[in-house]
């Protein structure tokens, strides 16, 4: 239980279309991440799945049943909001139990469900507190707990980590991944952070301007991007795009990831403009007359001086060819 299908889904606000015909199938138990720059429509799409926004045209189906006209509460889904959206006047226990209480679940059953979720999230000692008395990380866990208690078919996460500091973000990310394994539930997760997408997802959906650019497993997107947008969006630091014509190739642009550019080769010449030493790796920025600023990622600590002249090489089978419109040439 918990498969999601979107068929030619569109959304317009007034005359502007923000979702332009999205088709997508998320299988039961899958962790699916919507990723894209801000304004790409990923949150809108999530809110349409939740029922918080109406669908302009197309169908949203959960487990094969069309849910376009169902109220959010009747879609058997749960959502974790960016701002957590806890009820400030209710205790942690009541926050988690409200949905069940509203549905008329017997009290003992509510108790059991909240107790179990609290245990899972290490919230048991906080059950009588109110949101104002919790830290950011604890609030986040309560928000997740509120979702778990309802045993939904589908979990929706709307940028749930963006209000946490860096350390807590990594920790919560691992926690969410663990929950997904333990619950085996279908999860849809929206983020603009490609690292979150890469680390959490079974399936990544890259969106831009209301259109799906590519759908695939993280490593498929990394190793086999369909276009320059996906190639540039997935992977950090960003992929280098070279002027293929200057290299005597017939494609328009050549994409090479920073780790696949190696110093010492003779194909590309340039000067070092800046060096970032991160300990485990060194990023060397090379200004090339033909291709602009290129990033080279080297393992370990490496010494380069600014203005040093370097030659860069690459293995042809590690390079991606794109046409003038940015489409991948395979």
């Amino acid at each position: 239980m918990g498969a999601l299908t979107l068929t030619q889904v569109t959304k317009s606000f007034g005359t502007t279309q923000v979702i332009k015909g999205v088709d997508l199938a998320v299988e039961d138990g899958e962790f699916c991440v919507f990723v894209g720059p801000s304004g790409c429509g990923k949150s809108t799409l999530l809110r349409m799945i939740a029922g918080l926004e109406d669908v302009t045209s197309g169908d949203v189906a959960i487990d094969g049943a069309r849910v376009n006209d169902l109220a959010p509460a009747r879609r058997e889904i749960a959502m974790v909001f960016q701002s957590y959206a806890l009820y400030p006047h209710l205790t942690v226990r009541d926050n988690m139990g409200l949905a069940l209480k509203q549905a008329g679940t017997p009290r003992a059953q509510i108790e059991a469900a909240t107790g179990k979720a609290a245990e899972m999230l290490a919230l048991a000692h906080l059950l009588e507190r109110r949101p104002a008395e919790l830290s950011g990380g604890q609030r986040q866990r309560v928000a997740i707990g509120r979702a778990i208690v309802r045993r939904p078919k589908l979990f929706l996460f709307d940028e749930p980590l963006s209000n946490l500091d860096a350390a807590l973000r990594v920790q919560t990310r691992i926690e969410i991944a663990r929950l997904h394994r333990e619950l085996g539930a279908t999860m849809i997760y929206v983020t603009h952070d490609q690292v979150e997408a890469m680390t959490l997802a079974d399936k990544i959906v890259v969106l831009r301007g209301g259109v799906v650019e590519q759908v695939g497993r993280p490593m498929d997107l990394y190793n086999d991007p369909d276009n320059t947008f996906v190639a540039g969006f997935i992977g950090s630091p960003q992929m280098n795009f070279l002027d293929a014509g200057k290299l005597g190739l017939r494609s328009a642009r050549l994409g090479i990831r920073p780790e696949h550019l190696v110093p010492g080769g003779g194909q590309i010449g340039g000067r070092v403009s800046h060096v970032e030493k991160l300990g485990g790796e060194t990023l060397v920025y090379v200004a090339s007359e033909d291709h602009g600023l290129l990033t080279v990622r080297l393992f370990g600590e490496q010494d380069y001086a600014v203005d040093e002249v370097v030659g860069l090489g690459f293995e042809p089978n590690r390079a991606f060819h794109f046409d003038a419109e940015g489409r991948r040439l395979r």
Binding site: A71, A73, I77, Y84, A85, P88, Q102
Partner: peptide
């Protein structure tokens, strides 16, 4: 978002 959370929880 709090109101939306309530909608999701079936409190309408």
């Amino acid at each position: 978002e709090v109101i939306e959370a309530a909608e999701m929880d079936g409190v309408t």
